[in-house]
Design a protein around this nucleic acid. Structure first.
Lengths: 144, 144
DNA sequence: ACTTGACCTAGAGGACACTCTAGATTCTAG
DNA sequence: CTAGAATCTAGAGTGTCCTCTAGGTCAAGT
């Protein structure tokens, strides 16, 4: 078990490590988005274990992929409840992967339109013409 | 000029065509996110021209790609002001394309993590084992 | 010892992008 | 002609996801 060597981290260290604010970390805890309870020092300060940090890293990835907090919370709850609900965890993740694929497709479409417009402008600037071709609202092929 | 044939559309038709609500369309107009003024009938109802619809389609793409409304407004303003600011329009679009690329990369990373977790769960369900491998907080390679 | 900075809670506040309401008018189909 | 659907305005409200504030406690360096 090289996994849980007694290292712990302050909230500030964790914030730096996972790219969230300390405010957000406390918010996540309040909202029950974490799997285990975060331990405290005698004086009440949070001590994050490596496993907590790992979970937070997963959280940030899922959030980046557009998973809403409600669903992240659902997932956290399932994990907290322990073995027996793997099918639900799986379907939750699978649904999210589907959404990610859709997002990627949408972004690629948007990227094409942007690129097309960039090309139009670049060509315009190269040609330095003012022949009415440059109304960016013209997206249909019909040109005078 | 096969471009501006007198067809016009009601706000409801446009909403259906571009996938926005009528509320959103009025909101966009109020917020100066449109390029031209939308014409009105004698009784004050909006009449959208094809060019307006085209612009709205561009808007939805840019929004889908994560462009904030403030920037969309800036772009609309530049277009409204007419020729002469193409360089700024270009840099705005180019910056957005850069952000889209970053988003795609982030989504692909998230997708990998999700897929990996899905695989883990699927394998688990196939094997029907409970040997402590299934703590989803374990993201580091170390396994017993 | 003292100062500076990190941390604590509970709750308010803010940014964003709409979404909805109310009350009135107007268009359209039967 | 009339009922119902669509539209109008100005402004308030909503959901999401944090972010910040106030008023403290605690820890570490000098």
């Amino acid at each position: 078990m090289a996994d849980d060597d007694g290292r712990t981290f302050t909230i500030g260290e964790v914030a730096g490590a996972v790219g969230m604010s300390v405010h957000a970390l406390r918010f996540y805890e309040r909202e029950q988005l974490l799997v285990g309870p975060i331990e405290r020092t005698a004086s009440g300060r949070r001590r994050y274990r490596p496993v907590d940090v790992d979970w937070l890293r997963v959280c940030t990835r899922l959030r980046e992929s557009g998973m809403p907090l409600t669903e992240l919370k659902r997932f956290a709850t399932l994990v907290r409840e322990g073995p027996g609900n793997e099918i639900e965890r799986l379907s939750l993740l699978d649904a999210q992967r589907e959404r990610v694929d859709q997002q990627i497709r949408a972004l690629e479409q948007a990227r094409e339109i942007i690129t097309w417009k960039v090309d139009v402008y670049e060509q315009h600037l190269r040609n330095d013409e003012a022949i009415g071709l440059w109304d960016p609202t013209l997206t249909t092929g019909a040109q005078p």
